[in-house]
Nucleic acid binder design. Sequence first.
RNA 1: GGGGCGGUAGCUCAACGGUAGAGCAUUGCCCUUUUAAGGCAAGGGUUCUGGGUUCGAAUCCCAGCCGCCUCACCA
Length: 543
Amino acid sequence: MGQRSAPSRYNFARGTPPLSLDQDIYLQRQEKLRALAALGVELYPRRFAFSHTLAAIHAAFDAQSGEALEATRVPVRVAGRLMAMRGHGKAGFAHLAQEGTRLQLYVRQDAVGEAGFAIWKLLDLGDFIGVEGYLFRTRTGELSVHVERLDLLAKDLLPLPEKWHGLQDVETRYRQRYLDLVMNPEVREIFVRRSRIVQVLREAFTARGYMEVETPMMQPLAGGAMARPFVTHHHALDLSLYLRIAPELYLKRLVVGGLDRVFEINRNFRNEGISTQHNPEFTMLEFYEAYSDYRVLMDWSEVLMAQVAEQVTGSSTVSFAGQHLEFGKMRRYSMREAIRAFWPAAAGGAPSDLELADAAGVNAAVARYNAVAAPETRFAPVRATKDAPAGVLIAALFEAVAEAELIQPTIIYDFPLAVSPLAKSKPDEPDWVERFEIYAGGMELANGYSELNDPVEQRRRFEMQLQQREQGDAEAHGMDEDYIRALQYGLPPTAGEGIGIDRLTMLLADARSIRDVILFPLLRPETGKSDAAQADEAVAGNV
RNA sequence: GGGGCGGUAGCUCAACGGUAGAGCAUUGCCCUUUUAAGGCAAGGGUUCUGGGUUCGAAUCCCAGCCGCCUCACCA
C-alpha cells in the first residue's frame, strides 16, 4: 500500500520539523484515500439507503436462533462507524457502531470479492461504512452481518482514542466532545437522558395548559435576577445590550398580555465564576401561571419533580453522589425553621422568629454563629457586609447554616424581602415574602414565588435595590421603568418559578460536575495548530 | 482571587536523581467464526514551556502556561 513512503513522497526535506505520529497516521490515511480512489471508490458519497438501524436489527432479531436466520437469510443494509476490526487473513470481523448500539460484521474475501476485500483492507478504525449482506450467528452465537458488499461512507483521518479505556483526559473530553461521545457510552447516555428530561418537562407543562414562548436573550436592562451580565453591542442601533441573566420580567409582561400560563426553556448568561455547579451560560426552565401563588407552585413542583424522576430514571428515588435522593416526598422548612433545625449546638440558642425580626437580633445571632463557625468546616462564617439589611444577613445565615445539609430534596419557603425584589410580601409579615427554593444534593435547584404585582410597591423595591447598589452591591437589581409600566396595566395574581435544567440533569444522571451535562462547556480557547493542520501545510508546501 | 493535585508516545498509564518503557492504536508479514482475536517483526518522544541546582533532571528548585478539585461569589 506504500504508506511508509508517504512522508518522502511529499518531500518534507526543507526545514520541515519531524512529523509526530498524529501527522504520520493522518498522512497514512490520506494515502489510503488515494488508494481507494484508485480502486474506483467514491470517497465522500452522498447517501446510503439503509434497511435497518442497528437498534432495529437488535430489536427484531436478537431473539432469533442461528438456524432460523440461516433459513430466512434476512437481507440487510446497515451503516455506522467502525469501532473494532479483527483481521483473519482473507477474512475479518468488525464492529459497527450507530446511535449507541453495535453490530458485528463478518467480511470474507469469497463473499465480497477481491475488489471488496481490497476496500476492506484500506479501512481504518473510525471510518464510516455501509454494508449489505444477510444476518447470521457466528460460532459463538453473536448476531452478525455476513457482508456481501461494502461501501466507504466517510474516512476517519485521525486516530480514535484507546478502545479499552476510552477517552479519559478531562480537557480533551470537553474540548472534543464528539470524541467523548464516540468513545464513552455513559457520556452519550447522560445527554440522551438530558434530552428526555426536557421532553418530559415539556409534556408536563403542556398537559397543565401552558404554552411555550421565547423571550429576548439580548436585553437593554439585565433584570429578573441578581448577577453580573455579559455586555454586547448592536451596531445599527448603536445600542448596548445585555445577554439576559433571566427571562422573568419578559415572561411576566406576557402574563400582563393575557398569556396566562407560559414557560420558556432557554439559556441564561451570568458573567460570574465557573465551578462544578456553574457555567456562564446555563439552561433555565422558567414558568408563570396567573391566578396562582407560591403555595400552589410548591405543591406542583413537588409532584413535577417526582414525575420527572420517575419517567426519566424509572423511580422517584435516584442515586446521586452515593446518596439516595427521595423525590417522592420533599421536606419543607421555612427559612427560619431551617436555620434553627441545622443550628450548630456550640453556638448556643438558635434564633427565634422574634430575634430574626429586627437588625439587632439578627446581628446578635450572626455574632453567636460566627463565634463557632470556621472555614473548611461545614459551618462557614457569615461574611457580614457593613450596613447590610437584616434580611440579607438572614439569607446569608441560612446559606451558611443549612444549605450544605440539604441533600434530600427540600423546599425552603418564606424569604426575606431584602433579597427578593420581585416577590410579593407575606400579608402578615411585611419584611418577608412568599418565596421558596428547592434544594437537592446540596444544590439550589429551583426558585419560585408569588409575583409582586403592585407597581407602586415594585417601584419602591427597585429603589431599595438601587440603594444597595450605591452601597457597593454590584448585583443589586436595577430600575426597569418599562416593566413598571407593564405592571401599571395590571398583572393578575401570578406565581412563577425557575428550575435549573443543568442541575436537574446532574441529579437525575448522577453527574457531579455541570460540565458533564453541558455538551460544550465554556473553556479557555486552545492555542496553536493541530498536527493535522501542520501536516496539510507541509503537504501544500506552506512550511 | 486563595489553597491542593496534575501535565511522559495518537490513547491509557509506568519509570521518582543514573540508557524514557508497557498495553492499545499504527506499519509489514502470517492467519476464512473472532470479539480487549492471535503470532512474528518494525516505526513512533522538545517527558507542557522557560530558567536553575547537579558530573548527570521526566524526576529536585523557581517562574509561567493549561487542566481538575476545593474555598470565596453565584443558580
